[in-house]
Design a binder for these strands. Structure first.
Lengths: 333, 333
DNA sequence: CTGAAAGCGCTAACAA
DNA sequence: TTGTTAGCGCTTTCAG
């Protein structure tokens, strides 16, 4: 069996021209039913598969979606990637993946490479490096693009992400119902919308419930930030009743550092996370958190992208999807 | 600025033919220095970039590498993906990613899709599903392929992975030096080489050190298996001194179940993992484990693949890379 | 309803 | 050293 059988061979086998064969296989042009059957049978028999390269050259469309994430190794992004891969695959797109390694310059370069590869559209989870503190509007290419997970700078594209305010609201409310009267926030700074929105929502909900809030610790979404938060707490004369961490990773770092400092969770202090990672259920104690609707985010993002690929020039849309509260050991006494 | 500037335009601007422009840019054919400069300048000025589609159609090479993993969401694979992405990118390849969702049928299908996309080569981390217990030799395509991480069935391709026997040896030796005299194995079954090799190495090293080994629990590489192992231990009249778990995930499941059962690590029993995930350092207790040389595996795999892409028809090679022992809380009293 | 032919952008024979 | 041209495999006018 020849490794590549061309349309010409199928046409010859079916006794028609390439043009007819093409039409028969495409099925959207007027071709006699009889030839359609014959051509399809021959194609099947010979194991014909269209050459996507030739088709792309001719049609200007690759059926490829590019996705750029800050770091594939981060479980949140890898799960998002997983979900996006499934959805785009279901829509007939293949996924070209690029990792910006949390470097805005590299991110821009990767976007350009993907555009050069003629992807039909791109999904971007923008990076925010500590180095490049200012937000760069990441649109160096004229390919349909939707931002996913978070936004840097003023939105200049469609956006799909979690409803941060709602999630934080759920957590604060839950902690209040657990009897917490003082709550500290340990999370990311204002460089991207997630950090900003979670912090603002925390403030707003704390106020609504009349909760006292010691000064927060705000930096990144990483373990390190959690450790810093724990150290701040260990230095405080009076510990807060609870800590709202801006991410599961922060909570992990926080809890393990508190433990080293002799403060245990949930006995001495309640802690919540944000993201709903698998590890949250394996950690000790299991972590109360808010679960990101990853599948829904992936689904909606691909929908947005498809409509842009199909030529929509509607105003930028922003889609916030509700997360779900998952109560666990870190807030259960 | 036009979004796509073709070679023809560059040639016109430089006052030469497309052929000359192509050669000048490629640089490997005889062209006068003066025209090279002129063409390059014009290309630069116009922002010309070769169209990879056209080039691929002409050359039959896409500079694309496909990679199929059982599940992107698994931290080990996402880190491997990350590493592979970097290495292949450094060699001028873009990465097309596919997730087989641990389904051999889907895996075969994805391999075919990638082959249809005309990738120059493929990296496959074969899946092993509980459903399809028998190993299928995964070579439905005639594209250079190297197996990475593990092998299913008789090797029919180059392979790069960790040196399982060495890793297990390090762990057993370490536990012996901690004073353990009875060790139980909780790991994966024999469906793939990793499960088989780790188990065999455990047996061999236990014998060398004269260690007593109660019956093992063997199933998958997942949390569930660890939980099963813990339950077996909780039922035993006499607990072993230590448990060698076949993966970090198994160890996590095992430790948390033991904790629920009132057995604590490392006080009552020592536990080791395998993989060296980030979580191993965040877990309580921090986990003694063997760190997979992920970067080295990625590097070597891409090297193997490149040599196959370049036409090498040497016999199949198998490259086992040494892991490193990382001692932590789960074996430190 | 079907065929002939153009052409997507590029590279490599082959000529000059 | 440079230009002309064929052709990679496909889709799509334009004729018939």
């Amino acid at each position: 069996m020849r490794s590549t059988v061309t349309l010409l061979e199928v046409a010859a086998a079916a006794g028609v021209s390439v043009a007819t064969a093409s039409r028969a296989l495409a099925g959207k042009d007027r071709v006699s039913a009889a030839t359609v059957v014959r051509v399809k049978a021959e194609a099947q028999r010979l194991g014909y598969r269209v050459d996507p390269i030739a088709r792309a050259l001719r049609e200007g469309s690759t059926r490829l979606i590019g996705m750029v994430v800050p770091v594939i190794g981060n479980p949140f992004y890898s799960r998002l990637l997983d979900a996006v891969e499934q959805v785009s695959h279901a829509h007939g797109f293949e996924l070209l993946v690029a990792d910006s390694h949390a470097d805005p310059t590299e991110e821009a370069r990767r976007l350009r490479v993907l555009a050069g590869r003629k992807v039909d559209g791109m999904l971007l989870a923008p990076t925010v490096s500590a180095a490049a503190r200012e937000s760069t509007v990441p649109m160096p290419v004229d390919v349909p693009l939707v931002q996913i997970d978070r936004v840097v700078g003023p939105a200049a594209a469609d956006f799909v992400g979690v409803d941060n305010a709602l999630g934080i609201g759920m957590l604060v409310e839950h902690l209040v119902s657990c009897g917490a009267r003082t709550m500290m926030y340990v999370g990311a700074d204002d460089v991207n919308n997630s950090g900003r929105e979670r912090w603002q929502a925390f403030g707003a909900h704390a106020e609504i419930h009349g909760v006292t809030t010691p000064p927060p610790v705000r930096d990144g979404f990483d373990v390190k930030t959690g450790v810093a938060g724990a150290e701040a707490i260990l230095r405080m004369p009076e510990r807060p009743d609870a800590v709202v961490a801006g991410s599961d990773l922060i909570a992990f770092g926080l809890i393990s550092r508190l433990r080293e400092g002799g403060v245990s969770v949930p006995e001495n202090i309640l802690v919540t996370g944000f993201d709903g990672t698998d590890m949250a259920q394996l950690f000790y104690p299991t972590l109360t958190t808010v679960v990101q609707p990853i599948e829904a985010i992936a689904y909606e993002a691909v929908q947005f992208l498809r409509s842009r690929i199909d030529g929509s020039d509607a105003p930028w849309r922003s889609n916030r999807i509700a997360p779900a509260l998952r109560v666990a050991g870190s807030t259960t006494r």
